[in-house]
Simulated assay, not measured.
Amino acid sequence: MSSAGQNVKTVRKRRGLTQRELAEASGVSLSTIRKLEQADRDGARLETLRKLAVALGVPTMRLAGAPGIEEADPITADRWAGVRDALERPPLASGLDDGPPTVAGVRASLDDAMPLFTGDQLAHLSVLLPPLLRDADALGPEGRTVRVRLLQLAGWLMVQTRQFSAAETALERALSESVDRMESAATINTLLWLLLRQGQLSKAHDLSVRWADETEPRISRATPEELSTWGWMLLRLSAAAIRNGQPGEADDAIKLASAAAVALGREYTPGNDFLRRFGPTTVKLKAAENAAVTDRPDLVLRLAERIPLAGLRSTSNNRNRHILDVADAYAKTGQYADAFGKLEQIREGSPEWLPNQRYARDILTKLIKSRRTLTVEMRSMADAVGLPL
């Protein structure tokens, strides 16, 4: 029996509930609970465990044990093999005809590549990053700043594509070379996202609490970068808490993040780092995400009406995730055409991002179940998100 299934069964019996009663209380199907407890399923979705935990009155991680983690598929892993190799092995010696890399040259190459990062141009990045990482490694101590930034971005991409071990390698390397609190916090922000995606909620919670305490500024004197950094630690704390069945703590963290955003008064991007863009709109996006996690589709749609997306780039950290939350809310409220329209919106703006999103596959699965026959567009979308029919 899987540890998650054993934990569910143990807590359910302590509560004096039958499997059917737990299904009714949680909204999880009886067949899913039976398969989980009988170990017919290899672990369970974090969303499923959260619903069961709420019904049983325990934190999600009390049930999770060692949750199954969906890693990258073989095609994705093969595409990024060069990046993983560059992260984990020392730089290659320069050829006889190669001049040594320079800090200015590597920085210029990274600046030129930024539109690829902000536009989720994954195919191009998988080719460009290996030599750029090796050049950055060859710079020595004088290339520390550009190397840290490149490692942060590489770690983010590895999280994005579910290559978690490589992501941890990149982020640990970036953290080891960071020399000030703000630089370290930028790496910790992505590391927290890695932990959340792995389902390590308790670890993410504790780390975000620590860094929120360490970066909390005096608001009346805080710089925009300090407010942005603290705000993101609070948003990560809220994300960990809401997923671990601690809605009160999640709400408190969102309120504090909102205070930081109000003090900023606008969306702010420290050092032109799109991963740390923070402000009132970002907080609203994450509040809607919390509503989605706790299965409140009506609230997601109400909040979405007040979120201005026109000025936001189609970055996977914020805007695209929010559009998926809205699509899911439409699907759960029976507005299937609107839900499919949101998936099409993401595919049009970020076609290389979408296949890495299990969330998108789950939403499309709901839409397909609502149909007797599939349209050509639905079959095309299934191919786009990697959903076998």
Results as ranks from 00 to 15, higher is better:
E21Y: 03
E37R: 02
A39Y: 01
L324C: 03
G311K: 12
R236S: 14
R20Q: 13
A86D: 06
A260N: 09
Q6F: 09
Q357N: 00
P115C: 09
E88R: 14
A154S: 15
V54S: 10
A104N: 09
G334S: 06
E172S: 14
Y330V: 00
Q246V: 00
L151W: 07
A55M: 05
E216K: 14
A123L: 11
V262C: 01
N318R: 11
S316T: 04
S176L: 08
I323S: 02
E142S: 14
I363V: 14
L196S: 09
L285R: 05
A291Q: 10
S29C: 03
L46A: 12
P217L: 10
P247W: 08
P355G: 02
L171D: 01
A239L: 11
L194Q: 12
K35N: 15
D42K: 07
G43S: 07
L63K: 04
L129K: 02
R162Y: 05
L87N: 05
H205A: 00
D251V: 05
D180I: 05
Q246F: 06
S314H: 14
K332A: 14
S178R: 06
A239D: 11
L157V: 07
H322K: 03
L299Q: 13
E71F: 08
V8Q: 07
D252R: 12
N320M: 13
S2N: 15
V148T: 12
T315K: 04
T76M: 08
S3C: 02
E226I: 03
G231P: 07
D98A: 15
M158D: 03
K366Q: 15
P355N: 04
P247S: 05
L195P: 01
L139W: 08
L122Q: 04
L195D: 03
S31I: 04
A154N: 07
A170M: 08
G65K: 06
R266G: 00
G248T: 12
A108Y: 00
A154H: 10
F164L: 09
N318Q: 13
K51Y: 00
L264A: 06
T375H: 08
T365S: 13
R144W: 12
